[in-house]
Design a binder for these strands. Structure first.
Lengths: 210, 210
DNA sequence: CTTATATCAGTATAAAATTATTGATATATA
DNA sequence: TATATATCAATAATTTTATACTGATATAAG
């Protein structure tokens, strides 16, 4: 496999999204410059990104076949095989994630939630049961859960992360704004809204100054 | 202002978070290498990042004063002045965002929500009223709303974004997985969960292969 | 008080990512 | 069918970002 950069990885879902919407409106082929224009990227970047994951070459003048391109990106991103996940911490955000329908198209299947709050345990959110955090190990095995979606309060995030690792989780999608110190055999990806907001505010300030 | 990179901007909230937790546990000064170690970064990177925003210099052997550092980062990120925001689209995620307490510390104040669903209009979420999307212009002015937090369905995102711009919004924090074509006077920052998940899955796969 | 050293600031180097360039070619158009 | 051109792949140049190095200095330890 050729090396793919983090930045590239971030772009593929964006391409995919756009291509899917194009296909819905009946388009059957597209060129890199056209994609670039639609997504405000450079054509070189788009071409390189697509070259990396696409099995067939693009054709001058006509571009690439959309169906093939979609299939190749989905394949590359692993959307074609299902990964089971669980939400850890069934608060507002946790529940919103459990209710989110869109994960299915990413191959992510949220099978259940975990919490310590006894008033939540045994309830269902979007038809997915909420279990006690202390049944983690058995449920992870039982449901073949690979990814933990961590949405606990800050204070308990590290402790719960340790529990997850002990219970055999291989990847943590961390929505808690805390740096987790974790065995580097485990994949950790942080969703940091504060970082995103910092960029927005910075841009807002700059545009205001112009 | 010296130039700051996107990557750096993303890191400041992470530093801040860590420093706040340190201060809570009574620590009063910290060195760049110590921060680097705690957050799994390189000491050079941390030092450069801090140099950029810190008004006072660090001292060999003892490092930097935590209170000062926290204050400088907060100042730099604009956390000390309040920016009013509104949630556009009061679904599961929109409600979760309206309920999220953490934005206050970022200087972001969600004042209300907007939706087109008449069963939502007039209700309150976390004590913030939900207005009709068609009252956008007047409310934006009335409440001095600067940032729109966009959480609509895909299909309507672009159309609503246009309405927001017409109504005078200066920044859009876009949670919808759609590329918005917007006047570049407006700051747009995309929160793309699919991108984040793509990175996680890629790492998961790589670690599995090792 | 003196010395050793951790940390600093500033600069230089290296790595990563993006953008530009070049020559080739498949297709649309005449 | 011939020609012009949009797009391609591959490579080179540039820019951005991260890391390493150097000499200076404030503090801890003796």
């Amino acid at each position: 496999m050729e090396k793919v950069s983090i930045r590239q990885l971030e772009r593929y879902p964006i391409y995919l999204n756009y291509l899917l919407s194009l296909r819905e409106s009946g388009v059957s082929s597209i060129s890199s410059p056209a994609i670039a224009k639609a997504l405000s990227l450079s054509e070189e970047q788009v071409r390189k990104d697509l070259q990396l994951v696409s099995r067939s070459e693009g054709k001058p003048k006509s571009g690439r076949n959309i169906d093939e391109l979609i299939s190749d990106i989905q394949e590359f991103l692993g959307y074609k095989k299902v990964t089971n996940a669980a939400v850890i911490g069934v608060g507002h955000l946790g529940q919103a994630l459990m209710n989110y329908k869109g994960f299915a198209e990413f191959g992510l299947n949220i099978v259940c939630g975990f919490d310590v709050d006894s008033s939540l345990i045994g309830t269902k959110v979007n038809n997915k049961e909420v279990f006690s955090l202390y049944s983690l190990s058995s449920k992870i095995e039982q449901f073949d859960i690979k990814v933990a979606i961590l949405v606990t309060p800050k204070e308990s995030a590290q402790e719960v992360a340790n529990m997850l690792v002990n219970a055999g989780i291989k990847a943590i999608w961390n929505f808690v704004p805390v740096h987790l110190n974790i065995n580097d055999k485990i994949a950790v990806e942080n969703v940091n809204l504060a970082s995103s907001l910092a960029i927005l505010e910075h841009n807002l300030k700059q545009k205001g100054d112009e």
